[in-house]
Simulated assay, not measured.
Amino acid sequence: MRTFHGIAELEAAVGTHLGYSDWHTVAQEQIDTFADATGDHQWIHVDPAKAAQGPFGSTIAHGYLTLSLVPDLVGQIYRVDGVSIGVNYGANRLRFPAPVPVDSKVRAGVELLSVEPGGGGHMVTAKVTVEREGGDKPVCVVETVSLVVA
């Protein structure tokens, strides 16, 4: 865990890679729970027997499930002390270049792209790349934008 003591320290890290999260296993139970929460019960996610005959040979996680892991994974990588609040503001780019088969292990890496005044605080933009253990392509790449208020 990398800790920044205030916005100035965070600004000094722009352009650097901040590190990696721990590995997280995406189990069928998590996929099913996400399907229930979102109403997306497509067979490729929730029907192991049918998915075994499909293009990936097993069920796969929803792309948005993978995205939903980003706050927790990034929270393992860095934090900023000395601020009153940090909230998700949005995303500039989002892609799912490869699937996440059930029981895959994924982790995130973070590159800090910018820290700029705005929105009553500072807008922090980071490139988050989620990779699958043993995979040859990322499973999610997103530029996150957070509002951090001192």
Rank of each mutant, 00 (worst) to 15 (best):
N88F: 10
I60K: 03
A37W: 11
G39I: 12
R107L: 08
S58C: 05
Q53E: 15
F56P: 05
S104Q: 07
D72A: 14
V80N: 00
P99K: 13
I77G: 04
R93P: 00
G75L: 08
G57F: 04
L112Q: 02
V106A: 05
A91F: 05
T38W: 13
G109H: 02
F56C: 10
Y78Q: 07
S84G: 12
I85Y: 00
V74T: 14
V80M: 00
D47Y: 10
G39L: 15
P97S: 10
H62R: 13
E111V: 04
V74M: 09
I77D: 02
L65D: 02
A98C: 05
L69A: 05
Y64C: 07
K105H: 13
D72F: 14
S104L: 08
Q42F: 13
P71Q: 10
L69T: 08
G86D: 02
L69D: 03
S104A: 09
Y89G: 01
A37D: 13
R79G: 11
S68F: 00
A49L: 07
P48N: 14
L65H: 03
E111C: 00
R93F: 07
A49G: 09
G54T: 12
Q53V: 05
D36H: 11
T38D: 13
T66A: 07
I44W: 08
T59D: 09
D103R: 03
G63I: 02
